[in-house]
Amino acid sequence: MIPRYQRILFWSLFAGIFLMSAFLLRGCQQAHKRLAALNDATPIAAPTATSTEDVTLYLANDTDASITPTTESLALPQAPSLRARTLLDHLLSAYSLPTSKHPLQSGLAVDDVFLLNEPANTPDRPSTSSSETSSPQARQLAIVNLRGSFVDNHPSGIQVEALTLQSIIGTLHAALPEVTSIRFLVDGQPHDTLAGHADLLRTYPAVDTTVHPAPPTETPQL
């Protein structure tokens, strides 16, 4: 006669074996599904065809303090803000190349570019009176939000800082003609200067900043 406690132990062990088998079987099925999903080559979203386009970069040269427009082919997003930010990031990253004539430290420079519509009947200040006019309904203010790391590592000097700003302004003006004025922020806050000199608190007119400084002349200018 088998004692009762032995029968209870036997059936308990048998039930345990059954439950463990079911648990392992279920785990194997789930693992198989996971691996099968990883091998699925179906694209999540249909790819968009991005074609390159010609853009004008206003490149600075420290040697002769010039700004020269240069045309390059780039693939840019269509959304204007994203487009402006991508363009400026490309421009400023070009200055970190070893062959750059306006060397800047590498790294991301622009956090965001915001485009705000300006009232059509706002009178220009004297400083912006020479800016090129566009249709009243298309006037926009571009706010370039620079990264603090970019500003902290920018070389300090009147000329070198002015060239960076002129390069940004000219490039934005060429890519987004509806932008008539440009302001700068650093990490989302107003900032006095770029690196101790060039004024970042004023609103700059968006104009063609091509410049090739001429030497002093003997002709009286008064």
Binding site: D64, A65, I158, Q159, E161, A162, L165, D192, T193, H197, A198, D199, R202, Y204, V211, P213, A214, P215, P216, T217, E218, P220, Q221, L222
Partner: peptide, 26 residues
């Protein structure tokens, strides 16, 4: 601008390289 030109000429006569540029500066 005329003052910059005059001083630029004086520096050139002293055989010093000069660049006349413009910037926004306080």
């Amino acid at each position: 601008v005329a003052l910059a030109n005059t001083l630029g000429l004086a520096l050139l006569h002293a055989r010093l390289p000069v660049l006349l540029t413009r910037s926004s500066l306080r």
